[in-house]
Design a binder for these strands. Structure first.
Lengths: 348, 348
DNA sequence: CTGAAAGCGCTTACAG
DNA sequence: CTGAAAGCGCTTACAG
């Protein structure tokens, strides 16, 4: 009853070859004769041998591990993005190390340190942001960094982001085209870059159009906050008839308060637009007009970049301070939560 | 521009001690003088040293890695369970290796092989089930197995499950007490053990009460399937007035079809009960009466068991074929989706 | 194509 | 308490 798994030595003995041969058998492109390979494969199967990635990672300086660093992972949007990334990582033959963070100070640093201790080939941040110095240490050591929807820049890291301001602008255009007279902006108080950008776009467009609007911003990006925002915005005398919510979760909360607590009909009396296109936005109860993030594509491109950088490493000496950024355009998804009217085409 | 992170050797040199001393400094309980420790800690901080868990895992035969094996991870219930497990794993000082499976053949095996190749200390299955022989190999090698809501038994593994049949029985009691005359069971066709148990409990109780019921079972456990089930059940002439759905996602679909497509009022004309208590069940649009799984507790207990087993290892020689099982009772959460009536207390 | 040998970064008896 | 040495399971020049 050995406490330790079968090793290359066991396989080598059974197959009557050297340990080096066993290693070559499982190293793509290594020189080995078909016959020895066959013998080794057979022995390996018989013994249930799996190459020890810890040992190989140690020596090859490539673990096949990619850290996924995230908070609020049970949330619809985050879990969707997380699933897409996990899938992409696995498709690339790697495996995901999942590290949960929270809003506490140093949480992102601690997560990144965990990643370092396992020598992950890369770390992908879905939330939070590591201090510049630590990030630099990582990259100097050959770890790749991907920042998804993160505000600050980290030279050498890949930034994957969306044109959020444009979404805010389009929201105004859609609401106006629907005939809304009094607009509102409902947002959380987290002050994330991508959320601030959505707000900025909204304000810009509203200002440019010379129309008035009100706004409420507080709380986290939750359904509950959405309800509170809805209450605050919709129980006023001069209540708005068109609201852009910074996320779908907020929009669901606003819509539910409107319908079930204040008796306001959607979209007849209130048009609503969200952002993220979570699954619930497509459910019959919501039918929410929203902006969709190309989550699968974002995940695929991130992992593609990782592989490209790894290939690069063989060549140059890792100057790699080039600014890498991929910008996606959120796609408007029209559903029933916005009153009928002329819907503007693409662009402004 | 070294491609490799700082090692214990670097720290030892800077601190003027041996590499062994550095190792002891970061090994809890190792004998080291306060002065050397202080020197080493300082040097380590200065250099940004992180113990290489790959190397230590190799030698200590304990990687600190726990594999979480799951499918449909973006689903509300799964993502919640996944988050709870990740949290629990981190609380215990370990880190989660996330492996996504699908319904294809051998997917669970492949996932487990990945776990083996990284020598994870344990693997927790949230979905799927590895072949008996592979599971045994794992456990012989000291890897712990936890099966959450899985049907089959794997000697030596921890089974974490819920008393699903009881939930089915209670659902019938609640619907009858609400005055429902014609019951229905809406379930997916996946035939998972836990879902079959919910069905079994429902049928048993309905039979025992001598009342009639209809049922529909097909598709996956999705909102979409819920809509289809709702259409099938509720467009009949003799449509039911009380439906137990095997999951909340199904229930949401059924409710939406009832309300928005068939104009059936909930709960006046139709009482609905789900299972899982996903976040959406608590949203105003649904207010779904359902059964809650104690997800956090399930996660905590699973990880606790892992730690206990690890402690055990030092002592005995890993006979460990004892049957380990933890059974939780789903908790009824009453909301507005069931018509008012006498609500039975605990038990039948 | 193949094997013996060195080495990745660590831990852990073993002496002192 | 401390260091020198052996060894975890692998990969990879280096000879042959």
């Amino acid at each position: 009853m050995s406490r330790t798994a079968v090793s290359a030595k066991d396989v080598a003995e059974l197959a009557g070859v050297s340990r080096a041969a066993v290693s070559r058998c499982f190293t793509p492109g290594a020189s080995i004769s078909p016959e020895t390979r066959a013998r080794i494969v057979k022995a390996a199967e018989q013994l249930g041998y799996q190459v020890n990635r810890l040992a190989s990672g140690l020596i090859r300086n490539e673990t096949g591990l990619v850290a996924l660093i995230v908070s609020d992972m049970a949330t619809p949007y985050r879990s969707h993005l997380l699933a897409a990334l996990t899938e992409a990582v696995q498709q690339a033959g790697k495996v995901a190390l999942l590290i949960k963070t929270d809003r506490s100070d140093g949480s992102a640093e601690q997560a990144l340190r965990q990643a370092i201790s396992y020598r992950t080939d890369a770390a992908i941040f879905l939330s939070g942001m590591p201090a510049r110095s630590l990030a630099e240490t990582c990259m100097r050591n050959g770890m790749r960094l991907v920042l998804i929807n993160r505000d600050e820049d980290r030279p050498g890291a890949l930034q994957v982001r969306l044109h959020d301001a444009e979404a805010g602008r389009r929201a105004v255009a859609v609401l106006r085209a629907a005939g809304c007279r009094r607009l509102a902006l409902a947002s959380s108080g987290v002050g994330t870059h991508s959320i601030s950008e959505r707000e900025r776009g909204f304000r810009e467009a509203a200002t440019a159009a010379g129309i008035d609007w009100i706004e409420e911003r507080f709380g986290s990006t939750s359904y509950q906050t959405g309800q509170d925002l809805g209450m605050a915005l919709l129980s006023r005398r001069d209540r708005p008839d068109g609201v852009f919510c910074a996320t779908d979760l907020l929009a669901c909360g606003v819509m539910d308060v409107a319908r079930w607590r204040l008796g306001i009909r959607v979209p007849d009396e209130l048009s609503l637009i969200g952002y993220d296109n979570i699954a619930q936005a497509g459910w019959d109860s919501y039918g929410l007009t929203t902006f969709s993030q190309p989550v699968d594509e974002m995940a695929a491109k991130s992992v593609e970049w990782l592989s490209a950088m790894a290939a690069n490493d063989d060549g140059d000496d890792g100057a790699g301070t080039a600014r890498a950024e991929i910008l996606f355009m959120p796609r408007l998804v029209l559903r029933g939560s916005v009153a009928q009217g002329f819907v503007p085409g693409v662009g402004r």
